[in-house]
Amino acid sequence: MASDGVVVEIGKVTGSVGTTVEIPVYFRGVPSKGIANCDFVFRYDPNVLEIIGIDPGDIIVDPNPTKSFDTAIYPDRKIIVFLFAEDSGTGAYAITKDGVFAKIRATVKSSAPGYITFDEVGGFADNDLVEQKVSFIDGGVNVGNATPTKGATPTNTATPTK
C-alpha cells in the first residue's frame, strides 16, 4: 500500500443473489490541510450489481451534504461517478479525517463476483488547492465463495486525467 498520499479503498462485503448490500468507500491518509475537492470514477458490471443509491459517509460534515457531495450512476456506461467540492468557501466542510467517504447500496443480481474497480481520477486537492497523490484499492461483493480481489494492489495516480 502507498505510504504517502490519500488511499481510496472500496470495501469488500459478502452478499447473495437478491440481497441488498452496503459497500463502503474509505479514505485513508487524509492530509493535515484536509480535502477540499476530489472527483473520480469507479467501474462495475450492472449485470452483477444493480447500484440503487449512494449515501455520504461520516467524513462528509456539510450539514447539507447534497451541496458538497454528488454522485451519478450510469449503468449503460458501467460507471459510478463521485464528486466532492467543499461548499462553505472557508474550508469548514472539508474532509479532515480518515473514514467512510461514501456507502454504495447495491442489489446482487448474479452469482458472479461483484467487482467495483477504479477507472479514472480527475483530481484530489487540499484546502490550499494543492494537488494530492492518490491511490485506489478495488473491492466489491463476495457472492458465495467468490472473492472480488482483482486489482487489490493500489493504483498510483500522480496526475489528473480527463
Rank of each mutant, 00 (worst) to 15 (best):
T96F: 10
I51Q: 09
V13F: 04
T107Y: 10
G5T: 05
T117H: 12
D39M: 00
G123W: 00
G99F: 05
A146V: 13
N47P: 08
D55Q: 06
T117G: 07
V21K: 13
S135C: 08
I137N: 12
S32Q: 07
F124Y: 02
P31E: 04
N142A: 12
P113Q: 04
T90M: 09
V100P: 06
P31Q: 09
R105E: 05
G151Y: 13
I51D: 10
V41P: 00
D87Q: 15
A158D: 08
T153S: 11
T149Y: 09
D98V: 04
T14D: 13
E22H: 05
V108K: 07
G11Y: 04
F124H: 00
D4T: 06
S110V: 11
T161M: 10
I51L: 05
I60A: 15
P24Y: 03
V41I: 03
K12R: 08
P113K: 12
R77P: 12
T71P: 00
P31H: 03
R105D: 09
T66R: 13
G5H: 05
L49A: 13
T96C: 04
P56I: 05
I23W: 15
F42I: 02
V100W: 04
T14C: 14
K133S: 07
T117R: 08
A94R: 08
T153V: 14
T14Y: 05
N37T: 00
G5A: 06
A2G: 04
A146T: 09
I95T: 09
G99N: 14
G18K: 07
T161A: 10
D70H: 02
F40Y: 10
P56D: 11
A36P: 02
T14M: 04
T19A: 10
G114N: 06
Q132I: 04
P63C: 08
V61P: 09
D62E: 11
S110K: 15
V141C: 10
N145T: 11
I80G: 07
K150C: 12
F27G: 10
A125R: 00
P46M: 08
A158K: 07
V6E: 11
A158P: 11
E131N: 07
G151Q: 13
K133I: 06
A106S: 12
Y26G: 04
K12G: 06
T20D: 03
D126L: 02
D70C: 14
D58V: 09
G140L: 12
G15A: 08
K150I: 08
V8M: 02
G34D: 15
V30R: 10
A152M: 03
G11S: 08
P65V: 09
I60T: 14
S3C: 03
D126K: 01
E120G: 03
V21A: 06
I116T: 10
R77M: 02
T157V: 09
V25A: 06
G144P: 12
N145R: 11
A102Y: 15
S88L: 10
P63S: 13
F118D: 13
A72S: 01
E9H: 07
D58C: 04
K133L: 06
D76G: 01
I79G: 02
T71H: 04
Y26S: 12
Q132N: 04
F82V: 02
A152P: 12
V100Q: 09
G5Q: 15
F84S: 03
I23L: 11
L83Y: 00
V130Q: 09
V143Q: 14
P46S: 06
G123A: 10
F124A: 00
T155V: 12
T155R: 09
D58G: 06
G11A: 08
S110H: 12
K97F: 12
F69P: 12
K150L: 13
G29M: 03
D87N: 14
V143T: 11
D76E: 03
R28W: 14
D70N: 15
T149N: 13
F136Y: 04
T117Q: 04
D119A: 12
F27E: 06
D62P: 14
P75D: 02
D45P: 11
I104Q: 03
R77V: 04
V13M: 03
R105C: 07
V100R: 11
I10R: 00
P113H: 04
F69Q: 02
V7F: 08
D128M: 05
D87E: 05
G34Q: 05
D126R: 02
A2V: 10
V25N: 09
P46N: 08
P75I: 02
G151F: 13
A72F: 00
I54R: 12
V61N: 15
V7I: 15
A36K: 00
I95V: 04
D119Y: 14
S32A: 08
A158H: 12
D76R: 00
N142C: 11
N127W: 01
D87H: 15
G140W: 06
P160A: 10
S32C: 01
V30P: 10
T149F: 11
A112R: 13
F84N: 01
G34T: 06
D70S: 14
I73L: 04
D55A: 11
G29S: 08
V30G: 05
V143K: 10
I35M: 05
E50G: 08
A106T: 09
N142P: 12
I23K: 07
V13A: 07
V108D: 08
F27V: 05
L49S: 02
A72I: 00
V30L: 13
D55N: 13
T153M: 06
P75K: 03
N127E: 03
D39F: 01
A106H: 09
E22W: 15
T159E: 15
A152C: 13
A92E: 09
V41L: 02
T71Y: 04
D58A: 06
G114S: 06
E131P: 04
V13L: 04
I10W: 01
P65S: 14
G53E: 12
V25G: 04
F82S: 03
Y115D: 07
V121A: 15
V108E: 09
T161C: 14
C38M: 01
V143L: 12
K12D: 12
F118E: 06
N142D: 09
I80P: 00
R43Q: 07
D4I: 14
M1K: 08
N64C: 10
V8E: 06
P63R: 12
K150T: 10
V41G: 00
A94W: 00
C38L: 02
S32E: 15
T147H: 08
I137K: 12
S88W: 15
I80V: 04
V48A: 09
D62A: 15
V13E: 06
P65G: 09
P56T: 10
V7C: 09
Y115I: 07
G123E: 00
I59W: 03
G5K: 11
T107W: 06
I51Y: 13
I137V: 11
N145Y: 13
T19L: 10
F118V: 03
T161E: 15
N37V: 01
V7T: 08
K150S: 11
I35R: 00
K103A: 06
S3W: 09
G122I: 00
T157C: 14
G122A: 00
S111Q: 08
A85N: 00
V8I: 14
I52G: 06
N37W: 00
A112P: 07
T14N: 07
F27L: 07
G122S: 00
I73C: 07
V81C: 01
G139M: 05
D128Y: 08
T161L: 08
R105F: 04
T159N: 14
V25I: 09
A152R: 11
K97I: 14
D128L: 04
S110G: 07
E9G: 11
T14R: 09
S110I: 05
T147N: 12
N145V: 15
A152T: 11
T14A: 11
P63L: 15
D98T: 10
F124C: 02
E131L: 01
V30C: 03
G123V: 02
G29N: 08
Y115L: 08
D39L: 00
G123L: 00
G15I: 10
T14F: 12
L129V: 06
G140Q: 14
V81S: 00
D126C: 01
I137W: 10
T20N: 07
N142Q: 09
V108W: 05
K78S: 11
A125W: 00
F27C: 01
S3N: 02
T20L: 06
G89C: 03
S3L: 05
P65W: 15
V17Q: 09
D39P: 00
A94Y: 00
Y26K: 04
A85H: 06
V81M: 01
T117C: 15
S110C: 07
F124M: 03
V143D: 14
T161S: 10
S111A: 08
Y74N: 00
E120F: 04
L129I: 14
A158T: 08
T157E: 13
